[in-house]
Amino acid sequence: MQQVLHHPIVERLRGLLFGSRARRGLTFTAALYALLIAIGFVYLQPLLFMFITSIKSPGDLLNPMVQWVPTELYLGNYLKGYRVLDYPNTLVTSVLISMTPSLLQTAVASLVGYGLARYRFWGKPLVFALLLATFIIPPQNTVIPQMLTYRDLGLLGNPLALILPALMGQGFRSAIFVLIFYQSFISLPKVLEESARLDGASDLRIFFSIAVPSALPAYIVSFIFSTVWYWNETFLTVIFLEGGVTTLPMQLSRFTQAYENLYPPGTVNIFDRLNEAVKMSGTFLNILPLLVIYFVLQRWFVESVEMTGITGE
């Protein structure tokens, strides 16, 4: 028995199955992939469900036999979703509404992060505490007076209502971006700065010619994340922009109402009533631009932390 257990072939088999110090065994690898696939399924399942439901024809939707494989590729839902969402208009609006504040927010956050990282001055801990506070304070604790002020100024429904706070470093999650820039500027060697100063360069000049190029990844990552977060943000956009401009998520949140305006329930035949397939196509159209951005720029998302050198402190 003892001999069999230590036979070279058995040893090799055991190494293959359970691994050795040098490499993982088959059992471990299989378990790893099983878990990864299970978890991956958790994330993909809602998206798959959404996509498959969205291409189901009204007949497939009512047929209990049809679960994951529709009998035909039915694009009617997308046609309706496209019309109900007023897609071309809301898409362009969404892109502009999320990119403009992001651009400004990124620029301002980099200035503030640079100031905090490269200069010694009194009150820095206070500034960090306040930064943290802006991250923690829930929007509903500040939004009403802002809304009333905007109303008095006639800015309600105007994109400026989102742009102005971003311009002053108080945009959506600005604190995170300030910290990202703080982290990437603090590791900049002081020598570069000092030699430029000896050459007579002004502070702003040093910022633009030395600091900005060195932190390019931080700019890109901040801009991408900021755009995505602005895109997904609906609480503030609804309050500030309602009545003026309509973004995609805003239109999605009143999808039922918009649908019934276009296809009044009493007048259309049963196949044109609002069903979950149409709703899902609307939801899918809503996240489609984000998915495209994500897959095109995935390197910037998944490696963002390494690229910006955030240490987590």
Binding site: V112, R118, Y119, T142, Q146, L167, Q170
Partner: peptide, 23 residues
């Protein structure tokens, strides 16, 4: 140095007062 530092964060401080502290 301190004044230049404040210069960089000034816009944020103003923004904090206007869009966070005041509301």
């Amino acid at each position: 140095e301190a004044l230049h530092g404040y210069g960089f964060i000034l816009i944020w401080v103003l923004g904090f007062a206007l869009f966070t502290a005041l509301p």
